[in-house]
């Protein structure tokens, strides 16, 4: 099931702008290899889940996978064939608002080749450009 917040303060949110680069969550912190966003964008909860499923399937349930993003932002939509006005639409789905540099997924416990293949599969599910990154050891 796609991720969504358990409790929220407001049911609907404004769209907002994604400016600047990620200043937090921008390095591989848990696993050995990671998938880093190169562009800004919204990643839907369903896309995050699709990435997770493809990764666990490809890794044959070996190794470990971390998802570093969470869809906090509700996106509302008006129903089809409804005239403009009459207020904002109802929340339809949730997205993670991602800035360039954000690490989206991390893997560990698999070889580098396997990690590259797995993260490439995830990247195909993502609506933004991503790149493969490895953990920095030492300084």
């Amino acid at each position: 099931m796609a991720m969504m917040p358990k409790r929220i303060k407001f049911r609907k949110s404004q769209r907002g702008r994604i400016r600047g680069n990620a200043t937090r969550g921008n390095f591989v912190a848990f696993g050995e290899y990671g998938l880093q966003a190169v562009e800004a964008g919204w990643i839907r909860a369903t896309q995050i889940e699709a990435g997770r499923v493809s990764a666990t399937h490809h890794m044959h349930r070996e190794g470990k996978l971390w998802i570093r993003i969470f869809p906090h932002k509700p996106i509302s939509k008006k129903p089809l064939e409804v005239r403009m006005g009459k207020g904002k639409g109802e929340p339809e789905f949730y997205v993670a608002s991602v800035k360039p540099g954000q690490v989206l997924y991390e893997v560990a416990g698999v070889s580098e080749d396997m990690a590259k293949e797995t993260l490439a599969r995830i990247s195909h599910k993502m609506p933004i450009k991503t790149r493969f990154v490895t953990r920095r050891h030492g300084l």
């Binding site: 099931m1 969504m4 409790r7 929220i8 049911r11 349930r61 070996e62 929340p91």
Partner: peptide, 27 residues
């Protein structure tokens, strides 16, 4: 550590209809 085989099996199980349509609780 043990891989999370058991955990992923429960996660990949078909979501129940109630949970799929559930909305987050508004504080």
């Amino acid at each position: 550590a043990m891989t999370r085989i058991a955990a992923t099996e429960t996660e990949t199980a078909a979501p129940d209809a109630e949970a799929a349509t559930a909305e987050p609780e508004v504080i």
